[in-house]
Amino acid sequence: MTRTSQSIQKGEVLLAVDQVSLSFGGVKAITDVSFDIRKGEIRAIIGPNGAGKTSMLNVINGFYHPQQGKITFKGQTRSKMRPSVAAAQGIARTFQNVALFKGMSTLDNIMSGRTLKMNSHFFWQCLRHGPAMAEEIRHREFVEDIIDFLEIQAIRKVPVGKLPYGLQKRVELGRALAMEPDLLLLDEPMAGMNLEEKEDMSRFIIDVNTQYGTTIALIEHDMGVVMDLSDRVVVLEYGRKLADGTPDEVKADQSVIDAYLGVAH
């Protein structure tokens, strides 16, 4: 896979969230949270249920618009942004409850991740010849690489609605990878999986990070997985940032221990 934007070097800040607050009516989902994601790292966002983790991801890819604060991605600061624009800038994501296109095959699902990269004219699309077909084959080759990488060759033409949950999660990861994102957001990629499936998924996440150099932000509840996978962890609780640092630092943080285990009052 080739990368187009190499302006940001590994280790530099790719995305910065600066004092973001988000509320729905009177409910404050996120209050004054700041953190950054550096290029090439695996960044985990953890916290108890309702801490605002998924809301944070929704803010990052433009689905929610925060009332306060700003987000800087690849050096560009933005206020309000449509999700399709965020996608065009290079942010891809997977969902907590799988959001695949159920009526389409695995292949078509991953191919639809290439939509933004395809631009053959409507006229050629009508004929399905010439430039349209050449483009289709070019992207099919790319998608086949992803299918190989995720070891899902056997289910290429199966409608995803018929696949077991673990495989659906894998196809969803494939669809996000097909977008060649600079930043990949994974919302609980291992929820509801057994140990073996979790190991497979962890392996894929590490491989994506090392082979393709994709920056990853992930939400996960399995602390073992989070501590092993991630380079840095940010902890949220009740929409506020509790701690931020390497897994070891976070593990030793007294407020994090309190939040997770509870304290005697």
Partner: peptide, 24 residues
Amino acid sequence: HGRIGRSFMAVRDMDIAAELMGID
């Protein structure tokens, strides 16, 4: 069978995911 058909079906099956993948 091409890009346009896929984006139609993507909108049908899960419009939020379609939008987050850059389909207007």
